[in-house]
Write a protein that binds this DNA or RNA. Structure first.
Lengths: 205, 205
DNA sequence: CCCGGATGGTTGACATCGTAAATTTACGAT
DNA sequence: ATCGTAAATTTACGATGTCAACCATCCGGG
């Protein structure tokens, strides 16, 4: 048997590629990340990464997974600090926006509109669902405490949809209506919490 | 003077390019649209479109503008049918989602996350704001009638952000949680309307 | 001790892209 | 007919992702 890379070495180089790619993403965005550019920075030839990844898209996927991990860690860290579910929701919402502002390109790859067919279960999908569950739990807790009403999953969807919409409209440059993202965030959070805190039977419309 | 294209001819060819590009977008998405492919279909050489557009991005922008026009027309058409602002909001929300489902690629280009710097006022920005105003007006009307409370612009933001978030998460394939888009839409609309229909002083949280 | 083979890495090539520059074509006025 | 100029094409360049062929290095078995 010839000298073979053990799993640690393979994983090490994979991580190195992923790290460089992540930094390049942060600097120059998706279209600024190039296999030849990566290779140049890694000090290897353009084809070497193909020993560790199937394709460029697989490198992207690795970067996506890492980004989701960072994102989820931030959300959990903030959430763990707050016992009250509504306060937790507000705080994680603010952190959500902060993440997108701190790492706009990371957010872009995570939620890119032109992703490959999601027919098979991808790693980033798994990370996504890992971050989704705590949100549902928060909503469930709020419902159990009588602070909110409705189906926890529906409520979680409402929250996620609002945050994602706010962030992506901002990142797409469609929100430059004179107000900062943080300013816009508060009314959205207020509306969200208000809408969820009303007994359905009390609703007038 | 040699034969010169008059403005009508120029505009005609621009529209033709734009039409072909739009159809190709609808069929094969953003990355499926290629200058050489366009040219082949138009029966001209790859460079000819450059007589009518500065760059590929300018063609994209034209497609974007056309898409925004179609989108706005649909929204207005639906909105004009309903006198009650809240019903109007719900109906346009549903139409919003329907548009994104009917023309997913159009929605993609319109709100692509990696757009060029929005430093200068672009045509699609103008169309966007043209569609934004009626939404604010609807909210203002609801507030004036006492059906909603708060700043109309804030309310409009809440609505837009929810619809856009819902649609983009769906288009990015992040929502495959067993429920259809239309199912998800209704709770979001409900929450939105509920949150806006509560007097701030009545809010418990 | 040396040699065969597998394994990791490199080089070179290909097809494709957007587009700049040079070139050709075609028409209207002289 | 010819010439000037606008329109269109051809050619070419530098990218890109990736395939295929090649090379180099190290290992176990003789």
């Amino acid at each position: 048997m010839p000298r073979a890379l053990n799993d640690d070495q393979i994983e090490a180089f994979r991580e190195k590629i992923c790290a460089v790619a992540t930094r390049r993403f942060a600097e120059s965005g998706i279209e600024g990340v190039t296999l030849r550019g990566l290779a140049r920075e890694l000090g290897c030839s353009a084809m070497t990464p193909y020993r560790y990844f199937e394709s460029k898209e697989e490198i992207f996927e690795a970067v996506r997974v890492a980004a989701f991990r960072r994102f989820n860690a931030q959300m959990i860290e903030v959430a763990n600090r707050l016992a009250d579910p509504i306060e937790r929701l507000r705080a994680t919402g603010r952190q959500y926006v902060r993440f997108a502002q701190t790492e706009p390109h990371a957010y872009r790859i995570m939620f890119q509109l032109d992703q490959p067919e999601p027919d098979e279960e991808t790693d980033s999908q798994a990370e996504l669902e890992g971050g989704w569950q705590p949100l549902v739990d928060t909503m469930r807790e709020a419902v159990e405490r009588g602070q909110m009403f409705g189906d926890p999953e529906d409520l979680a969807h409402c929250a996620w949809v609002s945050m994602h919409g706010l962030v992506t409209l901002h990142l797409a440059g469609k929100l430059k209506l004179g107000r900062s993202l943080e300013e816009l965030l508060e009314p959205v959070l207020d509306n969200l919490v208000r809408g969820a805190s009303v007994r359905p039977e009390e609703a007038e419309a």
